[in-house]
Design a protein around this nucleic acid. Sequence first.
DNA 1: ATAAGGCCCTGACCGC
DNA 2: TGCGGTCAGGGCCTTA
Length: 278
Amino acid sequence: MPELPEVETFIRELAPELNGRRITRARVFWPGVIAFPTDEEFVTAIAGARFDRFERRGKYMLFGLDDPRTLIVHLRMTGKLQLAPAAGPPAKHEHVILDLDDGRNLHYQDPRKFGRFWLTPTPETVLAKLGPEPLGPDFTPAYLIDKLAGRKAPIKALLLDQRIVAGIGNIYADETLYRAHVHPARPAGNLRADEVARLHAAAQDVLQVAIERCGSSLGRSNLQNYIRPGGEQGGFQEEHNVFRKTGQPCPHCGHPIERMVIAQRSSHYCPVCQPDTR
DNA sequence: ATAAGGCCCTGACCGC
DNA sequence: TGCGGTCAGGGCCTTA
């Protein structure tokens, strides 16, 4: 599932390919994917625009056009952008195709149909509720201590809350908690300051290395698997310690990794290295 | 304000 | 082999 490192990889790898390219035609095969404006308006309005800016905010991709507008894409669970030579009819689960002026197509595929596109001159309205970037200057230990203070929700749930910090999903929340030796179910407000500081550092370390490894490719099927825009896999799954490793030995102590559900999400942790001190 | 649960989606997987 | 039930989960919504 695409989280911050995967989305960052998409942007980094698409930017040099798309920069300066003009969209000659847009096709939408499932209207629900266009969150704003309507799908018909989207198709008309984006034709002729040229890509010239590329950013990421949390798990959102921002494609700036050569006018005040920005194309925003969120892949949610199973969305994929792939750059390929123009082909014939749309593949299965293909919801958007942008024809480029170099003869290639930008394909959007999403089996679960959770991902969304926005075309807007005011991207801040889409991104308004997001917390700070976890690798940016506003995400400090003091900030995190303040945001968690008094909260009774499990720390895992708050790491997933994009209003607190933007870009962490289920994979990197579990890996962060493991690295910080914090049990996922502990009430966030009960964490000591040094534990929150460890979480802050662990989140930054995990995300930084995951970006260097171009994200995590895993999943039970090719459909769900995260694939980079040119078709290559990421590499960080080889460095996962706990995520989807239930029953396998903890890399540190050897105790079997356990699984529990928190905030309706699977959580994987080592009960020895991440003691439950609730 | 916070916490918890439901919803959207569909392919994979499991048990019979 | 076929079939029904369950699971996966990001963001948004409703409820308490």
